[in-house]
Amino acid sequence: MSLPAALRADTADAADAAVPWVDDPFGRAVRAGRGPLWLRRADGSRLPLEVERWCAPAAGADLGLLARCRGLSAPVLDLGCGPGRLVAELLATGVPALGVDVCAASVDRTTGLGGLALHRSVFDRLPAEGRWGAVLLADGNLGIGGDPAALLARSAGLLAPGGLLLVETAPEEVDEVADVRVEGLDGAGPPFPWARCGPAAALRHARTAGLAHREQWHSHGRSFLALTRP
């Protein structure tokens, strides 16, 4: 049975639709290991993306973040793992870890470092839901989906009872959602919603998601929270 013409057109449009972080300069930057790359807001302002740092070995504030993953009774899940430096460092120090990312170039780079990664959205079905010892939302990934409370609730559902959710926040106090595009010197991708939260806003969203506050710290100009699933 053939599809109606209107349905065929809708299906073709969906197939041709560009996907943020996939059909934009991000994947090319990850493969090259360098930027420059930005998130461009509709008003023309830009937020830099630290591609070179993400593609380099874990260092600086990364090490304090990952130290909090040692000694857990269950593995670590890195949501939006990017080029895989955190997953690779965890595995190198004997901590079982898995990355998840929608960008195939990120997954390829993670596995090229000897890490493990899945090519999926954080909102797709994932292995061992409700059994992870820690979940990471680093490098601005609290912005995924443009709804921090929903993302934190999703992350909480992945944790084992008493598990740790380690979240990097914006260093300044901000709570915003904006439509942005990934932009490089070779063009820009499609628009999508993205959020930025400072520590206070992230804690408000965490309470909405049923998470408890354990710790807050700053390191090398970056800001972090440790949250727990009661």
Rank of each mutant, 00 (worst) to 15 (best):
S219T: 07
G210I: 12
F192V: 08
R41V: 08
R70M: 06
G112K: 00
E176T: 15
C103Q: 05
G44I: 10
V107K: 01
P191K: 12
S223W: 00
E52M: 03
G157Q: 07
G221F: 05
D10P: 04
R85M: 07
P171A: 15
V177G: 09
E50D: 15
V51F: 02
R41A: 15
L165R: 03
W38Y: 13
R85C: 08
G184E: 08
V30G: 01
V174N: 05
A12H: 08
V107S: 00
E89V: 01
C103M: 06
T110D: 00
L65V: 15
G115T: 01
A104Q: 12
R125Y: 04
G210L: 10
L98Y: 00
E215W: 13
A188E: 15
S106K: 01
R68V: 04
D147W: 06
P48D: 14
P230M: 04
N141H: 13
L86Q: 10
T93N: 05
L225N: 03
L90T: 03
Q216W: 12
L164F: 07
L116H: 12
A9P: 03
V87E: 02
V22K: 07
W21N: 13
L159K: 02
L77T: 05
D108F: 00
D175G: 10
E172G: 13
V174G: 01
P48K: 06
D179K: 04
T169A: 10
S73N: 01
L118E: 08
L7H: 06
L165N: 00
R46C: 13
D24Y: 11
G84A: 07
R214C: 08
L164R: 15
H119Y: 04
R34Q: 10
D179L: 13
R222D: 06
A5T: 13
A150Q: 13
L65N: 00
E183R: 12
A15P: 04
D62Q: 03
V174I: 15
P20E: 15
R46K: 12
L225E: 01
A188C: 13
W217Y: 12
L225F: 03
A67F: 02
D147C: 10
A134Q: 02
R85A: 05
G133H: 03
G114K: 04
A201G: 13
G64W: 01
A156T: 11
